[in-house]
Amino acid sequence: MTLILLVIAVVAVLFVARSINVPLNTMIKTVQDVENESDLSKRVGLSHVLELNQLANAFNSMLIKFQSIIADASQVSVTTTNAAEKMVAISEQGSSHLQEQQEQVSSVSRSMDEMTEAVGHVTETITEAVNIAESAHQSAKQGHTVVQQSIEKINQVSVMLNRWQN
């Protein structure tokens, strides 16, 4: 009877270890893929283990935020390009008429102020994105370390169980 209970306990421990190890390995691979390929569209699959599921959701949310920040920065870049193209058109028209040129120089000056302000906003947005990316990178490194430590602990338990089984 004791032997049967022992076998059941070992099988249960191996099942639990596998149910944690497989999702962790999947998460690690996804994190490495995002890091190596710079592909923010990758997502971590959800797990039936609550803590792993929370980690997967947090990582996926972080990737969504990064994509949003990059899209916002791209939109600001398009807006800046459009504003610059408008300034060129105004300057070309201004050169044909002397009186209009004076008015357009004033307009260009205002546009330059707006452009400077827009560039300042772009710089702030990019700085914020870099800070967030650095923070996320650190968090990912810390998460990776925790996952690695967890895997090592699980492997240690597995080795102990194998030794105990033998």
Results as ranks from 00 to 15, higher is better:
97 H>P: 03
153 K>M: 01
15 F>V: 14
160 M>T: 12
91 S>V: 00
112 M>P: 01
149 Q>F: 03
147 V>E: 06
126 I>C: 04
130 V>D: 13
19 S>W: 08
126 I>N: 13
102 Q>P: 00
95 S>T: 09
129 A>F: 05
18 R>S: 12
16 V>A: 11
44 V>L: 06
155 N>P: 04
53 N>I: 13
52 L>M: 06
160 M>D: 13
114 E>Q: 12
137 H>V: 06
50 L>W: 14
57 N>S: 10
63 L>A: 01
79 T>D: 15
114 E>N: 14
139 S>V: 10
136 A>Q: 15
69 I>M: 07
69 I>P: 02
151 I>K: 09
25 N>P: 01
23 P>M: 06
122 V>C: 03
59 F>D: 10
84 A>S: 13
88 V>E: 04
27 M>G: 13
158 S>R: 09
38 S>H: 14
34 V>E: 01
162 N>D: 03
43 R>Q: 12
52 L>N: 05
125 T>N: 11
35 E>A: 08
155 N>C: 01
107 S>W: 06
153 K>F: 04
60 N>S: 07
115 M>G: 11
54 Q>N: 10
157 V>Q: 06
39 D>P: 00
61 S>N: 06
46 L>R: 09
12 A>P: 02
144 H>G: 12
151 I>Q: 09
40 L>A: 07
10 V>I: 15
101 Q>N: 05
145 T>R: 11
138 Q>K: 06
94 G>F: 00
49 V>N: 14
3 L>K: 12
76 V>S: 15
60 N>L: 08
133 A>P: 02
5 L>K: 11
8 I>M: 07
162 N>A: 12
141 K>Q: 06
43 R>M: 02
45 G>M: 14
27 M>D: 03
135 S>K: 05
64 I>N: 04
4 I>H: 13
42 K>S: 04
17 A>Q: 04
105 V>A: 12
151 I>F: 02
43 R>I: 04
91 S>M: 00
134 E>K: 08
66 F>S: 07
72 D>V: 03
76 V>Y: 15
90 I>D: 00
58 A>K: 02
55 L>W: 15
85 E>K: 11
27 M>T: 05
69 I>R: 04
95 S>W: 01
24 L>P: 04
105 V>C: 07
78 V>A: 08
28 I>W: 08
144 H>Q: 14
157 V>F: 13
21 N>Y: 09
68 S>L: 08
48 H>T: 14
143 G>N: 14
117 E>W: 09
92 E>I: 00
34 V>K: 08
147 V>S: 04
78 V>G: 01
135 S>W: 00
166 N>R: 06
165 Q>M: 03
151 I>L: 14
65 K>Y: 03
106 S>I: 02
100 E>S: 01
134 E>D: 15
91 S>T: 00
83 A>M: 11
103 E>R: 01
56 A>H: 09
49 V>D: 13
59 F>K: 14
31 V>Q: 13
50 L>K: 14
78 V>D: 07
32 Q>V: 11
163 R>D: 04
6 L>N: 02
72 D>I: 08
131 N>W: 05
52 L>I: 12
37 E>W: 09
88 V>M: 00
83 A>V: 08
